[in-house]
Amino acid sequence: MSVITIERKVLEKNDAIAARNRQLFAEARLFAVNVVSSPGAGKTSLLEQTIHRLKGRVRVSVVEGDVQTDLDAQRVASYGAPVVQIVTNGGCHLEAPLVRDALGSLDLAQTDLLVIENVGNLVCPANYDLGEAMKVVVLSTTEGDDKPLKYPAMFRNASVLVVNKIDLLPYLPCDIGALIRNAHQINPALRVFQVSCTTGAGLDDWCSWLAAQVAAVRA
């Protein structure tokens, strides 16, 4: 037997293209976030509310990732933001080359905030860098307060946790204190926002914080 030593990361191609995406974002001086969650936690709802609230202050462009359909892209477009759809045809997460190809359809020079809505999946997107400044994980109260412990990779790799659907708390056994404690047990540095995209609660805090991140990148 002879041995050929290799020592290479399997995802190095993805990571190299993610680094190039990150470079493009830096040149355009935009703030890019990769929004991840399980299906239906409210990524698109949060995006709609964010575009609406930041209108006239922050120019938002969107990359939508979906397994099938462009329904989310249509929803976002109706809020007036430039949007490009990636259909993964069964793929469970976005990868950096898909995002790079999608960027060609957006005017990055006219963008302050780029939101990449990942495929609804609390597992696979955790390990794929797309070039974003940070991952934002959305967790809704209906999913249960134990989810950060059960899907730790996503919470470990995210910088921000948005707890959505807090309007439903009175009807659920979800203990939001425990939810946040569990999230901080996995990742003590997580910044947490508690919001309801239905009532609007907490969204001003979230949008102010986002606007501040954008301002910091453009300063």
């Binding site: 037997m1 002879s2 041995v3 050929i4 290799i6 990361k9 390990n127």
Partner: peptide, 13 residues
């Protein structure tokens, strides 16, 4: 940890 690497290959000469 989060390693995912190809370490080496073995060939049968």
């Amino acid at each position: 940890g989060d390693d995912l690497q190809v370490v080496h290959v073995e060939l049968d000469e």
